[in-house]
Write a protein that binds this DNA or RNA. Sequence first.
DNA 1: GTGAAAGCGCTAACAC
DNA 2: GTGTTAGCGCTTTCAC
Lengths: 351, 351
Amino acid sequence: MSKPNSKQESGGEQRRLQMVDIARLAGVSVSTVSRALNGSELVNAETRQRVAELARSLNYSINFGARNLRLQENKTVAVVVPYDAASRQHISDPFFLSIVGSIADALTDRGYDMLLSRVDAERLDLASHWFDSGKAIGIILIGQWRHHDQLNEMAARKLPLVVWGGEMPQQLYCSVGGDNVLGGTLATRHLLQQGRRRIAFVGDANLPEVWLRRQGYAQALREAGVAVDPALESPAPFEPGVAGDVLREFCARVRDFDAVVCCSDVLALLTIQALRAVGRSVPGDVAVVGYDDMPLAAYCDPPLTTVHQPVAEAGAELVEALLGQMRGDRAEPRTMPVYLKLRESAPMAGG
Amino acid sequence: MSKPNSKQESGGEQRRLQMVDIARLAGVSVSTVSRALNGSELVNAETRQRVAELARSLNYSINFGARNLRLQENKTVAVVVPYDAASRQHISDPFFLSIVGSIADALTDRGYDMLLSRVDAERLDLASHWFDSGKAIGIILIGQWRHHDQLNEMAARKLPLVVWGGEMPQQLYCSVGGDNVLGGTLATRHLLQQGRRRIAFVGDANLPEVWLRRQGYAQALREAGVAVDPALESPAPFEPGVAGDVLREFCARVRDFDAVVCCSDVLALLTIQALRAVGRSVPGDVAVVGYDDMPLAAYCDPPLTTVHQPVAEAGAELVEALLGQMRGDRAEPRTMPVYLKLRESAPMAGG
DNA sequence: GTGAAAGCGCTAACAC
DNA sequence: GTGTTAGCGCTTTCAC
């Protein structure tokens, strides 16, 4: 036997209404209620109407747990944001947060629910839990971080998975992302056009997206006949705390550069602060290009020239890729266009 | 009869493992597997071990839908972010996004899952759907917006609900928020101390939090013997697009003020832009205080003096309030301390 | 210590 | 057109 619900209903706790209650009140069977509420043609229009009204007036809504169990279906997608376990940083980069918002919209539009969670960036594979436990029918992971390998394993397990990030060689999983190589190229080419020649690069190239952006950066330099100088690279991570330290040290030690390509707007802001701390002006002494074009980029000091990422479209694209995958489509990685947004930190008229 | 699962397993789709599979492989019954996996003392230690290992090696995780249905329990909380239906803006204010991150952490720490969704700010009551449908055991709503009344109704229905926002007169629901009156007072008092006398107020006082902040603002002015001048109030909403227009118009029309208290950091940035557009400097001509102390506030131009909200603690506080409520505690509103973070936009040494 | 069986709230054959 | 019934994957009494 079993009576999980048998504990006395305490105080004002409202017992959740169920179909049997509606059925009793409407004087029909539960099947009829079920059919009526699902708009089945099988049930008399008058009955259907009556049941629907009763349910609405009683504020009844169906128990989705039960429904999903019975139907073997689920309309929940897990969105997972990795975090740095070492620093235990909160989800805070405005770009990631914007992407999450965009996904929320896209899922809502398609009638899906969104389960938001975090996972240790060193154990991306743990995200599979959401699928294995049946809590979600698929997973959207925000960023590849350092574990391309884990992602490939997950894909090999046939996990419905889409990752925001760049397309890498030997990639089994489906990724959706901005065109990182192009972004790196656009940023660098713009600086070169303004007459800058000693261009630094800020970002941790262990991350696939950064690695791709650096390719674009190197390629633009080569096109212009400028040598790539490893001394001008600062592997700052995305976490603002650590990054600030790294950049202060870098700007204090290295001074022979006149421009910087940064891999996020937050990094650009931190770079600008570090430069000012050592008495260099932006864009006068050093032109700075950011990445992401976060909503606040236009209101910074100076307003940031930055590579615009298609955040608004990203949500829809990620969701479509996931749903497509579950319909059995080939999980082709997708790369979305990016463009350079010109503002003051690296203006048109060379500084 | 029923065979919802009968559709031929297509291609590589992995069928989800269930207890019966583990049971068969372990040569025991499902009951034993269930007990073993739940660490029941009733089952032989050796068997328990064996089953646990088998399950792990097969990547089995329990089906929570079924478990919850059977146990009449659910560890999912709905977090709902209202949006402006007119402008259909994305969730974008960094402050709200930070709060969501903070809640995500707090829920994870306590073993709860988070369902994130949006709701039309004019129909906050629709958030009750998550509870009514059994998808969530409680609701955390980010902001009261204009519908104190709807929130009261929801509370009257005994909905497990906690709202981020200010404590208002005749409030039936449980709110958790920063001390808005104090925030308004601190900001205003600081400006007065720097010798400013014509202090503008930017924010839509139809929103409870803004209304409370304005009380603090007015109170500080009165303390100092300065008259409150309605001409110095600009009811800019939180949406950056609309707010930008409102503020540009305001700054073009009204010029006899030397300081501004803004109800968010984003509004502060927009105000600074609008002031510059009409040739006024910050903090030289006008000192500006923001609200929220968003992560980027320190990196703006100029770095923002702002009222720091306890974002990191907010998540835990909201979650505790919700869980407490479900344990039957009185749903007392909670007000958390705030403080003024001094930076350049309204510095100490009067300007 | 373990298994058989009932039932959580719902849907969909299958009867009538 | 509507009711009866089985069963989705799990937990737990009850029997052994």
